[in-house]
């Protein structure tokens, strides 16, 4: 069964049709790409899945659980994490704090237990810190753990956004243009990194990307959107040859 399943999802903003009849099946463990020209509705899809927008029609299920109508934090708790197209970090907080915030939703201790410093709450805090260091070491950010995120170089900020999302313990990771602003060398590193975390954490990845070499090299399956309509679906090689795709997207270049 598919981990993520979108059925007939549509989204209208007033008279503007942002998305129409999108069907998407992301298999467990898959690496799925969502591409399309600017304004095609890709980020809207992410906002619908992560609960920031409520679709005007259709259903979105995560291994059978309906996500439509749930608030973002509940959807994250069910195992969907995301990054943002324009990096959105917690500027002043340190790198370590970011990862700890990501773990906050898995905490069992209540606020008053933390305030009273009860043994259970302390143990949990120590455990969270240990896991945070583990994760930072795994993604190569341990050295800058105490730096405020706002002062990191751009590539590190992108990486931190992914680390923070990983800290929430996701099954499905939504990446909104992870390679935006990276040079070819950094993009290659990102590809290896994504493959690596996918294996290590048993993740399913759904990514939006403009960088075609990255998408073609990484994804097993693609959906191409244009003006809210699905114009092609299939493996990269087939999509690449699709005349509609060439007309709408590649042909424009």
């Amino acid at each position: 069964m598919a981990l993520l399943e979108l059925r007939q999802v549509g989204m209208r903003f007033g008279g503007l049709l942002a998305l129409e009849d999108l069907n998407l099946e992301v298999p467990e463990g898959g690496l799925y790409g969502l591409i399309g020209p600017n304004g095609a509705g890709k980020t809207t899809v992410f906002n619908l899945i992560s609960g920031f927008l409520r679709p005007t029609s259709g259903s979105i299920r995560l291994s059978g659980t309906e996500l439509v109508g749930l608030p973002p934090h509940r959807i994250t708790a069910l195992g969907v994490a995301r990054t943002f197209q324009n990096i959105r970090l917690f500027g002043e907080l340190t790198v370590l704090d970011h990862v700890l915030v990501g773990q906050h939703l898995r905490g069992r201790a209540r606020w008053w237990q933390a305030v009273l410093g009860l043994p259970g709450a302390r143990r949990e805090a120590r455990e969270q810190e240990r896991r945070a260091w583990e994760l930072l070491t795994a993604v190569g950010l341990a050295e800058v753990a105490h730096e405020p995120a706002g002062q990191l170089p751009y590539g590190h900020q992108r990486r931190l956004e992914i680390a923070r999302a990983l800290a929430t313990g996701p099954r499905l990771l939504l990446l909104d243009e992870p390679a935006a602003g990276l040079n070819p060398q950094e993009t290659r590193e990102l590809m290896t990194f994504l493959q690596d975390i996918r294996r290590r954490y048993g993740l399913t990845l759904l990514l939006i990307e403009h960088n075609l070499p990255l998408v073609m090299g990484l994804c097993e399956h693609l959906t191409v959107l244009d003006h809210g309509l699905t114009i092609a679906q299939g493996p990269p090689a087939a999509v690449q040859k699709d005349p509609a795709v060439i007309r709408a997207y590649i042909g424009k270049r």
């Binding site: 992560s50 973002p72 917690f90 500027g91 907080l93 915030v101 906050h104 999302a165 800290a167 929430t168």
Partner: peptide, 17 residues
């Protein structure tokens, strides 16, 4: 920490659960 995350970026904090 979660409260400070809300201060810094409420949307991102909500996305982090």
């Amino acid at each position: 920490r979660a409260m400070q995350a809300i201060r810094e970026d409420e949307t991102a904090a909500r996305a982090m659960g």
